[in-house]
Amino acid sequence: MKTRGLIDIAEMTTEELDAMMDVALDIVENPAKYAESCKGKKLATLFYEPSTRTRMSFESAMLDLGGSVIGFSDAQSSSVSKGESVADTARTVECFVDVIAMRHPKEGAPLVAQMNVGIPVINAGDGGHNHPTQTLTDLFTIKRELGHLDNLVIGCCGDLKFGRTVHSLVTAMSRYPGVRFVFISPEELRIPEHVRSEVLDAHNIPYVETTSLEDVMPELDILYMTRVQRERFFNEADYLRLRDSYILTPDKLVTAKKEMRILHPLPRVNEISVAVDEDPRAAYFRQVRNGKFIRMALFLKLLGIEVK
């Protein structure tokens, strides 16, 4: 049987997503029950580019399940700096651990790793492509904050072109009935054509595109803010020109629903003013916490561990 990791959120059925969120919720409510569930299991975090949140989230998730962690957080400190291929690194690491979480600047690198090993590989972000555990985090946060994933108006704001978290979120949320999207971005950072044609249009999901956050604010149930990422641009001038396109401040939230929630994959630069942090609708730090719980549920699923 082919070893199953998580490379793309589209690989998971809605039933699997729902079941994992149920497990994550149970972990939140009964952490002691899971404290030894991964005893003797080892995670390797292979991070070829910098990350604070995602790597620490993976590591603390495994530690909270009673497992242990090895790995690197800088490609320069590994054999990669000697020119080793992703496949060879993965084959080597497979000899030591039970599961791999990989972040890589090149798109498709975690898939290459998964094709070469017999243990689960989790894509912890590959360039501007996929970041499925962020999507799991986003879904779990929406579920915890609002109680449901259907019949929602989801606003995505900022860099929708290179923002991999937005693409994965749109793909994942499109499977829930009654979901509508509002895309707020400058012209240069619009949601890509392939997401519109192959996800939204293909499944008849209603959406609108706009350049004005203020105009659409009153109708949103979720406002998903993103950062304009310097590392996705080849041209510094383009980055600087678009960086400050949308900045969320308390006065822009005056017309928003009371139950609306603000999510952000973090880190933020300046796209959400710190004054917004005190607003109960700001859910982005709760979102970070949720990321650990859903990653714990993912480890249990991929390692085939059931906790009674």
Binding site: S85, V86, P105, K106, E107, G108, A109, D126, G128, H194
Partner: peptide, 26 residues
């Protein structure tokens, strides 16, 4: 940004993702 751009020995594989329009994706 594709992994095939830096790992030369990898096979270039494209899959049919939209039969109606004949779209292939890496």
């Amino acid at each position: 940004r594709c992994i095939t751009s830096c790992e030369q020995e990898l096979p270039h594989v494209f899959r049919l993702t939209d039969r109606e329009h004949g779209v292939y994706r890496c």
